[in-house]
């Protein structure tokens, strides 16, 4: 009971905070929408007439990048909550969480679930706007994409949490942006299919294939069209567990990076 109360309080606090920060709410939506309405419009016919699964027929570029942009929401939000953890730690509210009388792994996992809930809220809002714009996957896809969003969100959030455990100050977040978010996003299948990358650079295609963000995007893409992609699922699940274990290690007072930091 204690565990459940704490979890619901952590999730509730994260949602409340998100709703209070309207600027963040709008920014989180504007970013993928700009990509959808402007960037994708410019590249509309770029995919030509190639048919790639899970699509049944050839598709316009907007349709292709929609799951990638959902992934982008998860990626940016995962990293943003890592930023908020650095901020929280400096400001002290992370301390309040960490001195709660519950195992630390549980507190951190709850925090991760909370930020994933916020990501999912944003992702559905984006999908709703995309629907009005004409990107209309089968209705069942909206339900099936939920577990994919949970897993993808947890994986990217866990990566952010791990990074936050050794980022000393807020300023270092710019580094995370340049060295983690952008390479992860551009070196993935979010914006272009693997066969396109393969044509221009087999090396980049290989890197993109093993990028966990690519696998999360593919998991979302297939789920949104009512299909299950076991490889992407397995890959995302395993990387999620690895990142989570690293994050818990990073926040462990005796083994991780906390002890060396000091103040």
């Amino acid at each position: 009971m204690h565990y459940l109360r704490a979890l619901s309080a952590i999730v509730g606090r994260e949602l409340l905070r998100f709703l209070h920060q309207r600027g963040r709410f709008v920014a989180a939506l504007v970013r993928p929408l700009v990509w959808l309405f402007i960037f994708a419009a410019g590249f509309r016919s770029t995919l030509g007439i190639a048919v790639i699964p899970p699509y049944q027929t050839y598709i316009l570029y907007e349709e292709y990048i929609t799951p990638g942009l959902v992934g982008m929401i998860l990626l940016f939000n995962g990293m943003q909550s890592s930023l908020s953890m650095v901020y929280d730690r400096e400001m002290g509210s992370m301390r309040i969480l960490l001195v709660a009388p519950l195992p630390r792994w549980y507190l951190l996992t709850s925090k991760l679930l909370a930020s994933t809930c916020v990501s999912i809220l944003q992702a559905y809002l984006f999908l709703a706007i995309a629907y009005l714009y004409g990107i209309q996957p089968p209705p069942v896809g909206y339900l099936q994409v939920l577990p994919a969003l949970v897993l993808g969100g947890l994986m990217l959030g866990a990566l952010g949490m791990f990074l936050s455990s050794f980022i000393k100050q807020l300023e270092n977040f710019a580094g995370v942006m340049n060295f983690v978010i952008f390479p992860m996003f551009f070196l993935s299948t979010a914006l272009y299919p693997l066969w396109r990358l393969q044509e221009s650079s087999p090396l980049l295609a290989t890197l993109a294939r093993y990028n966990p963000f690519s696998q999360a995007v593919e998991l979302i893409r297939f789920a949104l069209y009512g299909r299950f992609e076991p490889y992407a699922f397995g890959y995302t699940l395993i990387t999620m567990l690895v990142f989570l274990a690293l994050a818990i290690w990073g926040y462990n007072p005796s083994k991780g990076l906390m002890t060396r930091r000091g103040r």
């Binding site: 606090r13 409340l16 905070r17 209070h20 920060q21 400096e90 400001m91 002290g92 509210s93 301390r95 309040i96 001195v99 709660a100 009388p101």
Partner: peptide, 17 residues
């Protein structure tokens, strides 16, 4: 930890709540 109450030096309240 269940028997410990802490007031940290840094403010730890959520200002928007």
């Amino acid at each position: 930890l269940a028997r410990l109450g802490v007031v940290f030096q840094q403010p730890t309240l959520d200002l928007d709540l």
